[in-house]
Design a protein around this nucleic acid. Structure first.
Ligand SMILES: NC(=O)c1ccc[n+]([C@@H]2O[C@H](COP(=O)([O-])OP(=O)(O)OC[C@H]3O[C@@H](n4cnc5c(N)ncnc54)[C@H](O)[C@@H]3O)[C@@H](O)[C@H]2O)c1
Ligand SMILES: NC(=O)c1ccc[n+]([C@@H]2O[C@H](COP(=O)([O-])OP(=O)(O)OC[C@H]3O[C@@H](n4cnc5c(N)ncnc54)[C@H](O)[C@@H]3O)[C@@H](O)[C@H]2O)c1
Lengths: 211, 211
DNA sequence: GTATTTTTGTTAAAAAATTCACATTGTGAA
DNA sequence: TTCACAATGTGAATTTTTTAACAAAAATAC
């Protein structure tokens, strides 16, 4: 397998999420068009993605749910799991910790960081909150590879720099301030307002078309 | 202007966010490569996007920040603004309301919905919380066009159906359960775990390459 | 046992998005 | 003035992503 498209990676994660639900419900096989329906895409798209990862279904029976879950895991997960930290234990940081807690996954939130002395030293949903001062040390000790940035926007850039200095390998930035990282650090930025504005644009477009 | 690419719409929103900051700082003009730097894309990409919306900069001086902000507004915003509701006033719902509060924008969160009697009747950051039972009425009365779904995953599908019945035009689904809507309703789904798994994949890839 | 249906896997085509390459031109320096 | 530079704007080329089309084969129907 040479090189998976970006979009395929995202979809594989989504397929797995859907497949896990099917598996829980006791479904042993699934057709490409069933997966497609759930994800609002086409069956060809699904088959193409699975082709790219080299998975072969059974003709007329579809794909083996369990096998496919496992294969997707082999492709996208790190074998030994991967440690994650949240920087900024405010509304969004807490919400995320809460959301992740309990999700058994190769990704584990093992630390939070904050500057607020009232938060430092406590744990939230089992995740200890450390002082930002100790970041380098904690990142090293816990082999943390990914940081989720949920500090106030004005501290985003400085905090991203700290993360890079601490040796983090990937950053997921939820603040609305784009940050800069060296090219060996993988960066993903997401702003909810952008998404909402996109929805709004297409709603407006549709209304204009109706006229 | 015939038809803007999906990606261009997202970037326009991001450009505007960056431009607003520049404007606040008193910067009157900006070059395509400056915008590009902020957004981690190429200058050609920026120029192409602006070409598509028909904006023309000044040679050697760049783009007029104020003018461009206004033009992007004309393209992506609805003239009279657009009302938004949050369904599920839990961790994430509250965090979002908090985040949006005060952002002056054409998009305004005007209502929240919940099933918890302790929450119904209160306001959060100025947004009143209504019973989900009253959704149809409130949506109509307040001309709400977009719903942000932040209910527990198991209620996502039923709640999306309610929104559609209430006459909503766009849904932004933050739950990990894909929902179904008729084709005249614009749907955008986002799962933070997918994004995190994507970051993790590329981190893993980089580590493998290093070996 | 043959035909029909249904589903996979894949090659080829199309569409969408990005980048290249470069003509154009305003600005400032020599 | 003339030259070199630095920026925009865009047609063409390239790359990426999606979709169409269809052969192959298993299951089912008759
Ligand atoms: N709330 C949302 O739904 C939402 C959505 C999208 C983006 N965001 C963005 O996410 C960020 C956080 O939002 P929030 O609502 O959680 O804000 P918040 O104010 O509730 O939380 C911020 C936290 O960061 C801590 N902090 C401050 N400075 C810090 C520093 N230098 N290092 C580490 N921690 C620091 C604060 O003590 C606080 O606990 C903001 O940038 C916001 O724009 C929020
Ligand atoms: N917390 C996060 O960071 C996060 C991130 C991504 C996605 N999500 C998803 O967002 C959703 C909400 O997460 P949360 O952490 O805010 O959960 P939460 O339990 O804190 O909040 C859910 C809220 O929805 C209300 N509710 C329950 N049933 C309802 C119904 N039928 N109609 C309306 N309201 C109802 C509850 O009373 C509660 O206030 C979940 O689906 C979760 O998976 C959360």
């Amino acid at each position: 397998m040479k090189h998976l498209p970006h979009k395929t990676i995202e979809r594989l994660s989504q397929y797995r999420r859907a497949l896990l639900l099917c598996h829980e419900k006791g479904k042993s096989h699934i057709y490409s068009h069933e997966i497609a329906k759930i994800q609002h895409i086409t069956a060809v798209q699904v088959r193409r993605d699975l082709m790219l990862i080299g998975y072969t279904g059974t003709l007329r029976k579809g794909y083996n749910v369990k096998e496919l879950i496992d294969l997707i895991g082999i492709i996208i997960d790190s074998e030994d799991g991967l440690h994650v930290a949240i920087i900024g234990m405010g509304n969004l940081g807490r919400a995320l910790i809460n959301y992740f807690a309990g999700k058994r996954s190769k990704l584990k939130i093992v630390a939070g960081f904050d500057t607020n002395p009232d938060k430092i030293g406590n744990t939230m949903s089992g995740v200890p909150c450390y002082s930002i001062e100790d970041m380098a040390k904690i990142v090293l000790e816990n082999d943390i590879k990914i940081g989720i940035l949920t500090v106030p926007a004005d501290h985003a850039i400085a905090t991203a720099d700290l993360l890079v200095k601490a040796g983090i390998k990937g950053i997921l930035n939820y603040t609305p301030k784009p940050v800069n990282v060296p090219k060996e650090v993988y960066l993903e930025e997401y702003d909810m307002i952008t998404t909402l504005e996109k929805v709004a644009f297409y709603v407006k477009l549709q209304e204009m078309d109706e006229e």
